[in-house]
Design a protein around this nucleic acid. Structure first.
Length: 209
DNA sequence: GGTAGGATGGGCT
DNA sequence: GCCCATCCTACCC
């Protein structure tokens, strides 16, 4: 897709989009266009991390220096560092003071594909460039420097195409967690090649087909 | 096609 | 000191 088409035929998602319950926002982010600088991709995989009782959420133990962004106003990026080498992108959702967040796990590259290849020289498949939360941030150049930024304005935004193709959503359990591992809170565009784990979905049990 | 294991550092108890 | 919302490589079918 050309940049001209992306900017002309879409609008930046407003704060109200993010100011809703975590599952709704997680589902509706599928098919939207994530943009950072000169790189863009279509979101194909998300996970919901609820506030309150969801022990898999970083927000489960309350407000700390790390988690304060999650409890802040909706529509801000929460970027955290994990396993000593990877960073993961989330959006704070729901009203200020609540602990909901959406993890962006994979996008299908749309623009800036040459840049992504340069950042990930060992990857030769376009669909794999930003497939998985750590791969996505590496391909996009997103780091903890983006933690806390407003994603309704600026260089890191999500855009909604005016003519958005209908997507078929598959729901599974979340990947790579131990607590609350049986909750149906992972959402993918069914059959999309950029979904992490490939087409088999073996790492997350399918709840709704 | 598949999986086992190691790299690596910050957050929190 | 232990846990962790990961990924890559090596190696084996």
């Amino acid at each position: 897709m050309e940049w001209r088409e992306i900017t002309r035929e879409s609008r930046i998602l407003p704060r109200e989009f993010y100011d809703r319950d975590t599952v709704t926002v997680s589902r509706e982010l599928l098919g939207k266009i994530l943009v950072f600088g000169r790189v863009a991709g279509r979101i194909v995989e998300t996970e919901a991390y609820l506030g309150g009782d969801d022990l898999a959420s970083h927000s489960a133990r309350g407000i700390t220096k790390r988690t304060r962004v999650i409890f802040g106003p909706p529509g801000h990026a929460y970027v955290y560092f994990i396993y000593g080498m990877h960073e993961c992108l989330n959006f704070a959702v729901g009203p200020e003071g609540t602990g909901g967040a959406v993890l962006i796990r994979a996008v299908e590259p749309v623009a800036g594909i040459g840049i992504m290849h340069r950042r990930r020289p060992s990857v030769h498949s376009v669909a794999r460039l930003a497939s998985g939360p750590g791969n996505l941030t590496k391909a996009f150049g997103i780091t903890r420097a983006q933690n806390g930024v407003d994603v309704t304005r600026g260089t890191l935004v999500v855009r909604e195409l005016k003519k958005e193709p209908r997507v078929e959503i598959q729901v599974t359990t979340r990947i790579g967690i131990r607590q609350c591992a049986d909750l149906p809170l992972r959402f993918v565009i069914k059959g999309n090649a950029a979904v992490s784990g490939g087409k088999s979905l073996v790492t997350g049990r399918t709840i709704v087909g």
